[in-house]
């Protein structure tokens, strides 16, 4: 916040609010360390990448949740998102389609997917487009298995995205933003700072300028996506990245973009890049 531009009385008031806000955040984060199943050590806080102007430090959404919600993500037995992962493992091994192939027929054990989540989305040379994990999954279904594409934000898709994320848990996010990905990254950055809707709020309004503060009952995080898919207690299922984006744009009283569409592809690359260095946590647990 540019305090210097404010009315003198406001400078005082705002400084007080900021101080209060930071106090609250520090309390919630104190001593919190995310180690899943007692063995996977997560990086929930690290230096921001140099190309992100608005942040010095990047912080996982896990740090902003209540102690109870945090605990649910620390053990797979308590993490309801793992039910979706289990059902995706069945789908991974399910032989189907005219050629009678499963994912495992081509890829073998799902552990072969280790590291995949960390570089998504990425530029696909053959398609000459930016592809998300969901795009790769659907491409295998339609081109290799000859079965129907899954809905972009549907349950089967989000569960499979979670199964693949699990293979990279604890590995740092590391998406490429240069070369052919650069124009997508620029477009995503523009969307991130666009103040949309009747409320005229951007992603940055809430997740860069105001993280650590409450907006009504919600404790604002940095809106990072290293924890996706996220199991939300609110709707009791795994939620994909574009579904979350859609909800946030809608809350600015704006016409949303389409999940799976070009805008959210670009935005996903940009938001993912803001979290480069944080570890893959999917499936995370959120309220």
């Amino acid at each position: 916040m540019k305090i210097s531009k404010l009315h003198p009385i406001m400078q005082l008031a705002t400084a007080a609010t900021l101080a209060l806000g930071l106090g609250v955040a520090a309390q919630a984060e104190e001593g919190a360390k995310l180690i899943v199943n007692g063995e996977i050590e997560m990086v929930t806080r690290t230096a921001a990448p140099a190309y992100i102007d608005g942040l010095d430090e990047i912080i996982s959404g896990w740090e902003f949740r209540s102690t109870e919600t945090q605990a649910l993500q620390m053990d797979d037995f308590d993490n309801s998102g793992m039910l979706g992962v289990d059902s995706a493992l069945e789908a991974w091994n399910k032989v189907q389609g005219p050629e009678q192939k499963s994912c495992a027929t081509c890829h073998g054990d799902v552990e072969s997917m280790k590291g995949v989540r960390t570089v998504m989305p990425k530029f696909n040379e053959e398609a000459n487009d930016l592809w998300t994990l969901e795009d790769y999954i659907n491409n295998c279904r339609t081109e290799r298995q000859n079965v129907e594409a899954w809905g972009y934000t549907g349950g089967s898709m989000t569960n499979m995205a979670a199964l693949i994320a699990v293979q990279s848990r604890g590995m740092p996010m590391n998406v490429a933003i240069d070369g052919p990905a650069a124009p997508f990254w620029e477009a995503g950055k523009e969307l991130y700072y666009a103040r949309t809707g009747v409320l005229e709020l951007s992603c940055a309004s809430c997740h860069e300028q105001s993280y650590g503060l409450h907006i009504r009952a919600d404790h604002l995080s940095q809106g990072q996506i290293n924890g996706f898919p996220a199991y939300r207690l609110k709707n009791a299922k795994l939620n994909g990245i574009h579904a979350r984006f859609k909800g946030c744009v809608r809350d600015t009283k704006a016409e949303t973009y389409k999940p799976g569409g070009p805008e959210f592809h670009a935005l996903e690359l940009y938001v993912a890049s803001r979290g480069n260095g944080l570890t893959v946590e999917g499936p995370s647990v959120r309220n």
Binding site: A194, R195, G197, V198, E200, R250, K253, A254, E255
Partner: peptide, 16 residues
């Protein structure tokens, strides 16, 4: 002067 004005359901409302 709004960018993509809509309602709280995510639908477009050109003249809110």
């Amino acid at each position: 002067g709004f960018i993509r004005p809509g309602d709280f359901k995510g639908k477009s409302v050109p003249n809110p």
